[in-house]
Design a protein around this nucleic acid. Sequence first.
DNA 1: CTACAATTGAAAAACGTTTTCAATATGAGC
DNA 2: GCTCATATTGAAAACGTTTTTCAATTGTAG
Lengths: 147, 147
Amino acid sequence: MSEETQTSLCDQWLANLAASGYRVTAPRRAIVELMASSTHALEPLAIYDQGRKDYPGLGLVTVYRTLEKLEELGLVQRVHHHQGCHMYLRAAHGHEHLVLCTRCGHAEYFSGDDIGGLINKVTQSTGFEIREHWLQLFGLCPACKNQ
Amino acid sequence: MSEETQTSLCDQWLANLAASGYRVTAPRRAIVELMASSTHALEPLAIYDQGRKDYPGLGLVTVYRTLEKLEELGLVQRVHHHQGCHMYLRAAHGHEHLVLCTRCGHAEYFSGDDIGGLINKVTQSTGFEIREHWLQLFGLCPACKNQ
DNA sequence: CTACAATTGAAAAACGTTTTCAATATGAGC
DNA sequence: GCTCATATTGAAAACGTTTTTCAATTGTAG
């Protein structure tokens, strides 16, 4: 499953870029291929390093510029972390939140948060009109847990 | 109530600094006074600007260094935001989470999050061993809601 | 194929944070 | 109170990351 979905997700993103009037270039292909298949939130420098294995001429500036476009198109999202707040990961599908492994950085989305009750409570106790929430879980992924 | 508690919180922090072997200096007093009474998460530059009204000789470096110590003593904590991830606010008492006003930046803590059930669900569905969670609500504070 | 405009990478600039260092101010001990 | 060792200070410099500038290159519509 993974190989097939990864490839098609990559093509999907490139098609999305093209449909939005952006050009599909070699550097962008390298970055998209990486980001569409990564299970870790990556910072620009890491994307640059990894991307250069695929396309050696890649410039760091292009990484920044491409991330900006991918984020604008909702394909990638920024992840805040204790260790860094400029990490990027493929965006959530609909309403999902992140679980992050504090050891290896593996990131996974989950859905079905039930904080509606909490939001009501906070609305009443603080008088705030809650419009958005931010939830992230941290821990050890299955692989790291067993070692 | 507010004036009294603010003053005593400020003195508490200064006593805490002294008890930990740190010296109580004029620049630190200015920063502590500010941070102990602020209802907004502030970034270093803002603390610098505001602090200089109180103590004009204040240096930005001292702001960074003092924040570092206040954080180490658990008096202040870093707040991550969409707009910035190096903002500081008085630390939570025990297990509390933040509600932030997206309009004016007013920050308030609340307690009583009931995400134990969610954590169990995610533990089962992902196999992660959850050890920590991060929850923040965003919206409009009472004042901004009515205007 | 051509031509125009988007995109590129290198270099320079801008930005926030950290380090270095000599001068200063604090607080413990007398 | 005074003295003194030393923690702390602010200015300047260094640092790493992000953004801007610019001429050369590359994609794509026609």
